[in-house]
Design a protein around this nucleic acid. Structure first.
Lengths: 299, 299
DNA sequence: CGGAATATACTCAAAACGAGTATAATGGAG
DNA sequence: CTCCATTATACTCGTTTTGAGTATATTCCG
């Protein structure tokens, strides 16, 4: 059992959805994700980070989970013997604070990953990306087939369908193909770059969140205490970067009994007023939300 | 951006299934999970661990994913200033090496978590566990209700149904209730204890694997190159700790086109011989295996 | 009052799922 | 050789869950 010394830092992907736009907390004018102090005074990493985020955002964090630990050698600062370990977390907060002086700022996450937003249909930037990817794939005759396959799969080309969960795979493919600025000196690049591998960590967080909303009721951490079903739908759409079928969406929510009426109604802008709902806290305990996909036998 | 110094180690939950029994690689006569050296010479943590496991097991690792990073203060050795960070991984290998001299040994994982195996019906040890859990819940009048709720949910009591994915939650509940030896000095305890928090890490790995086999074709990493559908089913059952419905299991596998016939047949022990199948490698690339649960709109 | 706009209810066919029954090959006991 | 235990594989059938709508209900606005 060998033990090594290393520098350790905490990093957070803190997400919120405001005006149907998913946002992420950033520092350095949107260039970097916030890194928290790895303080020894806290009982767990999680509790320390939780406190720190509340301090920074002015809101208690609703949900916090560990994302990934990065410690690759080619992560910038591997000077001075030990390497740096970044333990990253995904946090969800209800709403953002008005950005103060030294406070972190919020940026729409599709600013960094514009190809991920398919709510207004297929984004135009994809055409340019795909063209470059084709060139990259053809550039290596030996790996040509494999590269085209991978591009088709991750970006939903040629028979394959767009899969919103593959955010990380798409970023990594663009990185390998030299189509993001972080990959070194590249002539063509897409989306706003970030410091070091922060955009990769952001992609990891988005991918995790997109997958998670499908089987755990975490969206509610991003909603006010009362909301209409359309507001809920818009929030899910913002996260997934996709448009959903309205009637089927409400059927899904209702049949799972995730919400209950508050009794109030929303004073809308145009159209019939909508009922307000609240999240039923009890579902967390009462039901096995991870539906089994295995064909069980009796007894 | 504060950076702290810490001791870092890699830890692995390496799983295999032999004779329908899921096993985990251990050291110290089954008392601990193997911890790998955190070597600076490797490009990524993953590649270093991969090499090290191959060396130890004599087999290439089929699948390796990061599990969790633990760095809680109350993890044993937080002496000498910095604390220890354990980055844990889940690995799947095809088959075990005959245990040599200083080689790690394999132990059935239900030896450590006997309440998790429901293949022969509900294990008897559960009766004793539940009795103790009831006592524990009643011991705190203020949290009584919440504790009973939690026990019911995680162990599938009183209307709730057993959910095999909750392995970690169950271990953590037993830990809190003082029903495992690792929790300090307790009179009653269940399952074979392990060093420090290794049994918690094992639980994390099992939970992750049980969840994963439902939406990613990782079981095949545990199978020989050719296998019958019953062998495949027995392996899944071993992992999930449950019995599956045979006809529906094969329907599931076949309709997803995960396998193809090799042409060979198995020389069985009794009964009609079974066709042999192999995993169709192509499915990894060609299909979006994570079926969306969101009601998509057209367009 | 007649849209435009949104909310909510209901329909209907296709696919997936749970729980079987039915039939096909084997080897071994007698 | 026949019968049977045992396993493999095919097929059925009613129930749920989905995908993709249509239909109806309320608002506000001009």
């Amino acid at each position: 059992m060998t033990i090594g010394l290393a520098h350790a830092e905490l990093m957070a992907v803190v997400a919120a959805v405001t005006s149907n736009e998913p946002r992420v907390m950033t520092v350095r004018s949107g260039e970097a994700l916030p890194s928290g102090p790895f303080e020894l005074g806290h009982r767990t990493l999680q509790s320390g980070l939780r406190e720190w985020i509340q301090e920074q955002t002015g809101h208690p964090i609703g949900y916090l989970e560990q994302l990934y630990t990065f410690a690759d050698r080619d992560r910038n600062n591997d000077i001075r013997g030990g390497r740096t370990i970044s333990i990253s977390y995904l946090g969800l907060v209800l709403e953002q604070e008005a950005p103060g002086a030294g406070r972190p700022a919020w940026h729409g996450w599709y600013e960094y990953l514009p190809w991920e937003d398919h709510r207004q249909g297929r984004p135009k930037v994809l055409d340019a990306i795909i063209e470059k990817l084709r060139v990259w794939a053809d550039a290596d005759p030996r790996r040509r087939y494999e590269r085209h396959q991978r591009a088709d799969f991750t970006f939903g080309l040629d028979h394959a369908v767009w899969n919103e969960d593959l955010t990380l795979q798409r970023y990594e493919l663009l990185y390998e193909a030299g189509l993001v600025a972080e990959a070194g000196d590249v002539s063509d690049n897409f989306g706003r770059p970030m410091f070091a591998d922060h955009r990769r960590i952001l992609s990891t967080g988005i991918a995790r969140l997109r997958a998670k909303i499908k089987y755990r009721p975490v969206v509610f951490e991003l909603m006010p205490s009362a909301f209409t079903l359309l507001q809920l739908q818009r929030t899910v759409e913002a996260l997934a970067g996709l448009c959903l079928h309205k009637q089927n969406f409400r059927r899904l929510i209702e049949q799972q009994e995730l919400v209950e009426e508050t009794g109030g109604i929303a004073s809308e802008t145009g159209g019939r007023p909508a009922k307000l709902f609240r999240f039923r806290q009890t579902v967390v305990e009462e039901r096995a939300l991870s539906g089994t996909k295995l064909p069980l036998a009796r007894n």
